[in-house]
């Protein structure tokens, strides 16, 4: 299981996607917590990349939980009509890890 805290910027987003998938592959991680508490905006582009990362990780056999999405970011995602429907979320890192453990069956 790995947890990452990131600062998402446009030019780092794609890089982040590649790095994360590489790391999942290397470590054989079954679960990933991505902490977004330092990300102050998510536009439709970054949301797309995040959604893709979750799907791609899933293909590699790792479940992703997003944590620490800020209130303002959540409001704007809903304003934009972006649902991130099939992505799990948790309040913080600790709860994210708990959720992963639960989802992965203990």
């Amino acid at each position: 299981m790995i947890s990452i805290q990131i600062e998402l910027d446009d030019h780092t987003a794609i890089q982040f996607q590649e790095d994360l998938l590489e790391k999942i592959h290397e470590t054989g991680a079954k679960g990933v917590v991505i902490d977004l508490s330092t990300v102050d905006i998510i536009d439709s582009y970054i949301a797309k990349i995040l959604g893709d990362v979750v799907k791609m990780s899933d293909l590699l056999g790792a479940k992703v939980v997003l944590t620490g999405i800020r209130p303002a970011v959540a409001i704007i995602l809903t304003d934009l009509g972006i649902r991130l429907n099939n992505i799990s979320t948790a309040l913080d890192l600790e709860k994210g890890l708990a959720k992963l453990k639960q989802d992965l069956g203990g």
Binding site: L66, T67, I69, A74, T89, L91
Partner: peptide
């Protein structure tokens, strides 16, 4: 509905 979606995004 929007409020509940946003609540889900922050992890609740």
């Amino acid at each position: 509905i929007q409020a509940s979606e946003a609540v889900r995004l922050v992890g609740s």
